[in-house]
Design a binder for these strands. Sequence first.
RNA 1: GCGGGUGUGGCGGAAUGGUAGACGCCGGGGACUUAAAAUCCCCUGAUCCUAUAGAUCGUGCGAGUUCGAGUCUCGCCACCCGCACCA
Length: 844
Amino acid sequence: MTDTRFDPSTADGRWQRAWDDAGTFAADSNSPKPKSYILEMFPYPSGRIHMGHVRNYTMGDVLARYKKMTGHEVLHPMGWDAFGMPAENAAMEKGVHPGGWTHSNIDTMKSQLKRLGFALDWTREFATCDAEYYGHEQALFIDLYEAGLVYRKESEVNWDPVDMTVLANEQVIDGCGWRSGAPVEKRKLNQWFLKITQFAEDLLEGLGELKDWPEKVKLMQENWIGKSSGLEFAFELSNGEKLAVYTTRPDTIFGASFVAVAADHPVSQSISIGNPNTQKFIELCKQGGTTAAELETAEKLGFDTGLTAKHPFTGADLPVYIANFVLMDYGTGAIMAVPGHDQRDFEFANKYNLPIPRVVAASIEDAAKPFDGEAEAGDGVIVNSDFLDGKSVVDAKADVIARAEQGGWGKGTTVWRLRDWGASRQRYWGTPIPFIHCETCGVVPVPKDQLPVELPEDVDFATPGNPLERHASWKHVACPACGKDAVRETDTLDTFINSSWYFLRFASQPDDAPFDSEEVAKWLPVGQYIGGIEHAILHLLYARFWTRALQHVGKLDFAEPFASLFTQGMVTHETYSREEDGRPVFFTPAEVNRGGETASLKADGEPVDIGRVIKMSKSKKNVVDPDDIIAEHGADAVRWFMLSDSPPERDLPWSAAGIEGCARFVQRLWRLFGQVGMGGAGADASGDKALDRKVHQTVAAVAEDIEALSFNKAVARIYELTGAIEKAEPSASRSEAIRKLILMVSPMMPHLAEEAWHKDFPDMPLVADEPWPEVDPALLVEDEVTIAVQHMGKLRDTLTAPKGASKEDLEALALASEKVQRSIDGAPLRKVIVVPDRLVNIVT
RNA sequence: GCGGGUGUGGCGGAAUGGUAGACGCCGGGGACUUAAAAUCCCCUGAUCCUAUAGAUCGUGCGAGUUCGAGUCUCGCCACCCGCACCA
């Protein structure tokens, strides 16, 4: 091996060990420095790291290393979101224990992360499947129970009768279980719920304070929480009962021409008793699909109950229908239908020949205007509505609500789309819910000194169903309250609870408590959180809720866990496929020879089709294993690729040519870094002012770019500076430029930086411990600027002028240009616009 | 349907209303070499051209504001993402 090439296969490991041995990235909560908590969403240990992880963690790593260089005490931890279904599926398919499978995956993935040289504080590592972690989680769950934020309720679930388990909605495909293929049954089970709805208003308002969250994520959460306000009121039915309905458009109440209830509404149920036709219709409603396409085309269907409802103002008798488009779990499960101003009601009224009165119009004069084939849901003036006529929609809403409240038949109400969080899973591989069911005492929390309730190791997955249900010695215990025979809760907690507080445990890890509030306060909220957009709603909303809940019970004194959020784009790749027997067969990039416009299969030399650039996925086989790339090019080239070109929020197309270019740049820097001594004795001692300027400008700009997470721009500037240094004559300035460049690239290419640093400056400490280069503000300004000269807005010439030249001087210089004079061609000057230090525009 | 985003060379992308295409990739030409690899240098939006010069066009489309628009305004188009019979 010669000096002229950087050899990552030896250097990477050398510096990774050096950082480990020195404890370089262990966070000290007692440090007097300002704290900076940089966190990337922790991975599920599925088996191996993929490129998405590499991109995510590289971004966080650059920021963490940069923050350390700029004088911060940095907390940059890593752990494992280790509970979940795949481990149980592996247990069922391969006969391995979920814990063993998970831990072996963790070992693999940890060594992969280490090979990338991430500046992580591994002393704080944990997996959520550690009894220590989930034991503390159980304690928190009991705290929330005692604060009234956890309750039990019977609710309907998707039940797979073969696997004997509850399925999430996503696991039900065409009405059948995704694994067993058996038709899914609806079952009522007692489930544990978290009262997230108690914080609905708070979670919504809190979004307003999250200045450094993407608007997109905030909007998605806002829609998910789904606040709407309107009027809830009761109709008197012809059978003497009352029927509560909810509407956001009380202003259109005079336009109501019928009333509709959901198929599973109590009114429908009571009508259907002894009435086969009604029962048949209710069954029909339940069959309807729920996919977007089905709903789009689904016909509005109704069943006349024969009942009527008395209109609160007109006293008219409105027919009451059971309708397939009314949902039981929103509002009251019943509506007043205003066909003129709601599209669904409009379609329904058309089908069943119900009146379609107009109560909103563009103006009073349009009160009789017919509808043009669809409902008009927009704004306007109220018409045909007695005392509301002429009012605006907003005023009419307020008026009707006020009259309803005065009359005592209704009240202004807020309705939320957000539902309480069903946290029960009939699964083994999760946090056991720490409760005991006693016939005498009811539901009793496990006393905290008996936590953790550990998962039993000796379980069997050969029989379908939850092994905890069948584990006699684990399940049967004495009631902690009365001592009589009792049984443990065998449900486990949704894994989203694991990820709702892990960031607190990273900050503080006492043995006897989930966390220490004072320690947590030193680090939290997380300064920068980075992860995928797929967690925009569930994980991020749950974590926000859990933090508020802990604040509510007095364990935290802040409400928002993540001050700044960044959602990065995906890593994508071309796909390679070939038609075989009428269906595409996909090939991995490794199986393909890729030419300029074409690709062929290595195995047989036959061409394959190059498909769209899409997210790397196993099913399309367009995956590249990070380990292979690291082995071939080293960690720094991969890291550099992850930061180059694409803005971090957009997708990053992986390419072999791209990574080769990065590897070449690593070597190019290595050669340049070897020239630091060229500025010694005999070289130009007066320095190179232009290069000094370029260096300081780049240091300032790269710092700005990193802080804005605009890594692609930082990369481009580093390329530019590299070229400038290479071209510069040897001088003290040039040597200093090289020294600063090493520091500047060190967050991105830490191994190369260390290797060069210690070769150039053998007695210096680790680059990782060096400060970010200082910037001299005086060197940020040029003393000469290039002025663009335009005639009628078109560029005709550029000229060089001293910075700060007067408008008059610039105008004179511009008019002296031969090219400009040729363009003006003797026309009289009408106006000259001068933008100092930038441009002159001559108008004729 | 509702909400959001994106649209710039062959590709990824730069650009406080002020020189469009920085930087990288691909491609072309050359140097070094017996040769190759590696490296270095030059060219690389389109069209015209009397060609070291110069001209015209050009940031999805169409208007507008402005001395000047990729950037601002209005109206369209295409693609992507999220949500959705939510009353």
